[in-house]
Nucleic acid binder design. Structure first.
Lengths: 145, 145
DNA sequence: TTCTCGCTTGACGTATACGTCAGGCTATAT
DNA sequence: ATATAGCCTGACGTATACGTCAAGCGAGAA
């Protein structure tokens, strides 16, 4: 396997804790984050991250990795990438994070309301399905004697 | 407003309880079911219903209306139209509904498992979001004094 | 020099359940 | 005869989050 400048970035013995210690190639970043390279490029397209370039190759610093963690967390919490993008851009242009925190609070509450609704809907559906399940069992029991 | 043979079908005074009492045009059917005409045509395309034709116009009998109720119920319970289609075709070719009931039971149980997972995931997400909500509040409280 | 890696961009594909035209037919009302 | 209403089919559009090519470039290796 030949590795080019990409791997050189991560493999400079003795320089691990320089100012820009942990630079990663797209392969290393996707590996570390558990997402595909396609996903990283996709998020970049959408403006969620802006990895540096060395020539044409993407380089992921701790900043990008941190943002990716936030993005993935947002996804786990059920926010769309559009929403996540909005949060991040607020985050960028709001050093004190006052506006950011307020809007985050709002979004969080809205999402909570949604989830509570969903939870109720699911409970109802589960109840109804349990009824159907019981009826199916009876139906089968009758026919089998 | 002019109504053609469509409305004539539903408007035959004195004949309400003929053998084929309640025949409906697509407009009346969609109205009664609370779905769009497009939806009815779509389900027909997918083979879920087979309304009769008078010339080229669709006519919905009680049979189709009944199937539509089942379809809509299946949707509410979270089954895909493909799954619903499979149930219905089993239903058709299984007069005793033994096979049907067995498979329905399986599908029901699978769906229940899914829903219970979802419910857990939602509970976790709600918990996490509540934490974030509390943190946002603290953040704002600090800055506002 | 030629091969092979890893990377690049761009564009089209996927799944779901319809929405939204566009163009055209027919029957009734005027 | 013409307008209008209601219906028809067929085809493309929508939203989401990527997957999957295709074609090509620069850099070490053989």
């Amino acid at each position: 396997m030949s590795e080019q400048e990409t791997s050189d970035l991560g493999a400079m013995p003795g320089f691990e804790d320089m100012k820009q210690g942990d630079l990663k190639s797209i392969a290393q970043a996707s590996e570390a984050l558990g997402v595909t390279q396609r996903t990283l490029r996709f998020y970049e397209d959408k403006g969620l991250i802006q990895p540096k370039r060395v020539g044409s190759m993407r380089v992921y610093s701790r900043r990008e990795m941190g943002r990716m963690q936030l993005i993935l967390r947002g996804k786990r919490l059920g926010f769309s990438i559009r929403e996540i993008g909005e949060f991040l851009s607020l985050y960028d242009h709001d050093p004190d994070q006052v506006v950011q925190a307020k809007l985050m609070l709002e979004a969080t509450q809205e999402r909570l309301a949604e989830l509570r609704h969903q939870r109720e809907a699911i409970e109802q559906t589960i109840t109804e399905l349990e009824t159907i399940e019981a009826m199916s069992r009876q139906h089968l029991a009758k026919r089998d004697g």
